[in-house]
Design a protein around this nucleic acid. Sequence first.
RNA 1: GGGCGGUUAGCUCAGUUGGUAGAGCGUUCGCUUGACGUGCGAAAGGCCACAGGUUCGAAUCCUGUAUCGCCCACCA
Length: 733
Amino acid sequence: MKDVMDERLLKPYNPKEHEDALYETWQKSGFFTPEKTGSEDGPRFSIVLPPPNVTGTLHIGHAAMLAIEDSIVRYKRMRGHKTLWVPGTDHAAIATQSRVEADIYKKEKKTRHDFEREVFLKQVETFAQESHDTIVNQIKKMGASVDWSREAFTLDEKRGRAVNTAFKKMYDDGLIYRGARIVNWDPKLQTTVSDDEIEWQEETAPFYYLTYGPFTIGTSRPETKFGDKYVVMHPDDARYAKYKDGQKIELEWINGPITATIVKDSAIDMTFGTGVMTITPWHDTTDFEIAERHDLDKEQIIDERGILLPVAGEFAGQHIKKARPLIVEKLKEKGLLEKVDEKYVHNIAINSRGGGVIEPQIKKQWFVAVDKEFTLPRSSIEGISSGATTTLKRLMRHVVESKQIQIIPDRFEKIYFNWINNLHDWCVSRQIWYGHRIPVWYKDSQIHAGETPKESGWTQDPDTLDTWFSSGLWTFSTLGWPDTENADFKMFHPTSLLETGYDIIFFWVARMILMSGYLLGDVPFKTVYLHGLVRDAKGRKMSKSLGNTINPLDMIEKYGADATRLSLLIGAPAGNDISLSEDKIRGYKHFANKIWNAARFVLSNTNSMSINAAPALSEIDARTLSEFETFTKEITADIEAYRLHLASEKLYHYFWHTFADVIIEQTKPRLKDDANGQDKISAQYTLLYIFTDCIIMLHPFAPFVTEAVWSVMPGTKNLLIAAPWPDTKPITS
RNA sequence: GGGCGGUUAGCUCAGUUGGUAGAGCGUUCGCUUGACGUGCGAAAGGCCACAGGUUCGAAUCCUGUAUCGCCCACCA
């Protein structure tokens, strides 16, 4: 028997001997492209790869994402769908730039302002290119069957055209406006960041009670208080009933006597402190809103680098950090400091993109208006007809509410709605250099948006766009938009599925819904599958500082891509965080070997067998095959419902503990040379039949070992990647 | 302050529509069985957080409690 076996099968399965070559074979075969899959008028399946940031390398969370998406894509392809999976990378503007800035500062003690804009950008681009190359290699190592011929980058020329087109249209519709509003300013990176990019950290800091005329006010930031000339209290607060809104009072303040104005506003929490506060509209969001409501003056106290302005009098020119104790000292000397609570706990805002402590500032920025009405000229969205008037917020809510977009697991719909209800206008301008330059030019008091003006004298806005502006267009900018006649766009949009981590539902998923709702009058995808975070074996978040990270490339090197994929799929239902240990991955390496060894047994015992026509079956085999048919349907149903964690685990369990432990063992005596001829044939047929379909069904989850087995099976001409899924075939004759 | 999720074997976690509990790793004992010692056979180990309720029947549905965690908002 052994002389006719493929000699590769005689050794244990070694992933390294097969994986790169198989990937190469797949790629050359063309099956990664829709041109080679499905049929023109048949079902289609399209999905975009959430573009990884070009900030370095892929982590295990990316590996989980690739494993899930590739399993689904391979399944759809085998089901005969015309299948497209678009790969790409994200320039991740601020994250990438701050990473490069940090590197440069470490090496040369220089900031980006020590370089010309273009010179600095060249360095960022070089770094981005290197990251890109690493990432592409990692995606391939995972076995992801993406269509490389359609690879995109959020900052390439085509995506730039999409961004400018989108911006211009929104500007013309009045949905993008420029306004002086309070924004999250990062003094370290010298840029604004969006609300979603802020992380709150608990901090214990002194809390000062200050005498402000007849009142006592509390603050943790005395350095902002110089310009405070409005004192605010709740209109229903009986303690302060004798003071009237608009009333003026004279009082002694940090740098001398001032006139303060009483303001009554219900934003005040009567139970907090004394129920009275002064406001600093330039440097606090709540204060800004109060000032807007009452049309109060706003004065800047601190500049963009954190330096006190002339309003601070003798403290002008000092950094707020250094000035604070001095200011407190002066307040004490003047008898204005009543007491200090040293153990006051509050939250401070940090720029999560590698930046510093947020200092709110009023700045002229570009915003996307989410509550402004506009007319949607063409709509494919049910419940919103062409020509209807709506707002971005209503649009975003409607498509999910009406189930035109289904979110899996559905509990995230609530989280999504909750976010929309709290949504403010989206600040899209950033004072960084790496990214899409805002397509707006100024000349005297004129403003021009869209294309570069032909005449001279125009100056382009120096800012760039929030990186999520370009990623919001991703499902259609990758398919040729703004050319709506593009074949890919017509064939594949809206996309079938969006698969991504629940942590970017707001950043990205919501923004894609916004952008395609507005620009196309359509949904960007029909289903959203959200996966969780990959945590360590103890359920802790993986981080470099904890030293508990698992590098996917190391795991592939040690245990193979199939084992790595299975460890990230099995036991990982949608929306749940998963714990991963190296032991788990090792366990699935054993499974790959088990498949390999089973192949050796099956093939050496059924060599010339064909499963195209069933022989007369013994009773036991008919029953086994019938049970297998039920199993096949169950697996198919699980995958269709995106229960990949169940489908993969059931396949694992069936293959090992039913097929290998029971069916193979039960078959052994029946395969002996002196066994009954008819029964032997029946047993051989059953073995080969179930084995073949198991290999097919395991392929989406463990593509390498299954394709390797397939290649040594007699009678398999085509690649497994393109083999038809078994659920439609008749099982018994 | 608002919302969401977890609480199941020693550890980390599955359990799709309610029908007397499963995986990986770990533990114990045995096995040169002709696919596989990356294996095979066997075993130990869980009143499915707690208390009520619905039901013929609940880990699974409802109510409450405890506890851990996450998200959002952000109070000077």
